Computed example of a mutant assay.
Amino acid sequence: MSALAESAAVRHAYFSGEAGEIHALEFGQDSTQPPLLLLHGVTGSAWIWHDVAQALGRRRRVIALDLRGHGQSGRSASGRYATDDHAHDLARVADQLSAPVIDLAGQSWGALIAMRYAGSHPGKVGRLAVIDVEPSFEQAEDAIHPRPRHFKDIGEVMDWERSANPPTPESLLALWARHSVQPAGHGGWERRHDTFFFERWPFRRDDLWATLPSLHMPSLLVHGKRSFVREPVMREMAATMPDARLIVLEDCGHLIPLEAPQALAALLEEHFA
């Protein structure tokens, strides 16, 4: 498997979180710009951001986090995985960075976490990017579409991910497939996140509509045209936020950092300049 050889130069970092360590991938170096933190969605990890972070890291320090319960970050024994729990972890990471201001980009659940943090920490977030999410949900938190838990080899992981996210560049697909799983105790490979997320997605309880008017920082909303996220809802979000604009990527689904990394990196580079 050649996935690891495709990775850009990256540093691993660990921060103290409420449920254990928070693992992160770091790209780039400190600059005059605030550090840019990237947050993934449910069942994802920092590696989803690899190509985007590599591009953005040419000019600044970029930190992609593994949310608690995902990737190499700690698990919550009591199942404390609400959006507020993740926002508390983000606050602890921001404090440990000792930066007066940070920039934030979140995809799906990561965007909800970013908005929750930005709304409760006025003046701490310089610029914000919200990628393919709605601020409230009609589905129950336990209404989860079945996903495979176990794979016999990495090739099988790649086949599944390719079918789920067909536009993804092959090198990024291989990298994500390898880092989305871990060796299973009974042989083969299993998903690298808490099994809790096969049963419940706590963010389905969220309603952030009342938070949107308080997000005064310049904000970019990005929507994938083929996503299940509804474009009219994201347009209403942009209209509700004081300083926001929406960009729609035509040939893209929900996992935009995987499916359209170059286009997303270009949008983020312009927005966070």
Rank of each mutant, 00 (worst) to 15 (best):
A77W: 03
A143T: 09
I48V: 11
G224W: 08
M115C: 11
V233P: 02
G119P: 01
R205D: 08
D206G: 03
K225P: 00
L104P: 10
T211R: 04
G71Y: 12
L128F: 11
E236M: 08
E250W: 00
V130D: 00
L267C: 08
S180Y: 02
I154V: 06
P35F: 00
V62I: 12
A118I: 09
R127N: 04
R200H: 15
L112H: 01
Q139M: 07
A55G: 01
E156T: 13
R92N: 00
Y14L: 13
H12M: 04
R60G: 10
S214N: 00
H40K: 01
S78W: 03
R80D: 13
L65K: 14
H254Y: 06
N165W: 07
S163R: 15
V42M: 13
A87F: 06
E161R: 12
P100M: 08
S76C: 11
D103A: 11
L37V: 07
I256V: 14
I144K: 09
T195P: 15
D95Q: 13
L208V: 00
A46G: 00
D251L: 09
A174L: 02
H12W: 05
Q107C: 13
A8E: 07
T43A: 09
L267T: 04
L128S: 10
A64R: 10
A94C: 12
F137K: 06
W201H: 15
P242Y: 12
V52S: 14
N165Q: 08
K124T: 14
A82P: 03
A273V: 09
V181K: 08
Y14W: 15
T240A: 10
G253P: 01
L221H: 07
Q107E: 11
L39M: 14
G71D: 13
V248I: 11
L258Q: 09
D251S: 10
G155S: 08
S136K: 06
E236R: 15
E6H: 14
E6N: 04
I144H: 01
A174F: 02
L37H: 09
V101Y: 01
A87W: 03
S2L: 09
E231V: 05
L215G: 08
M115N: 02
A91P: 03
A55Q: 13
F228A: 15
L104R: 11
I247M: 08
P122D: 07
D243R: 14
H145N: 12
L104T: 12
G126C: 01
L112P: 02
Q54C: 09
E250I: 03
F228D: 10
L212A: 00
G106L: 12
S76G: 06
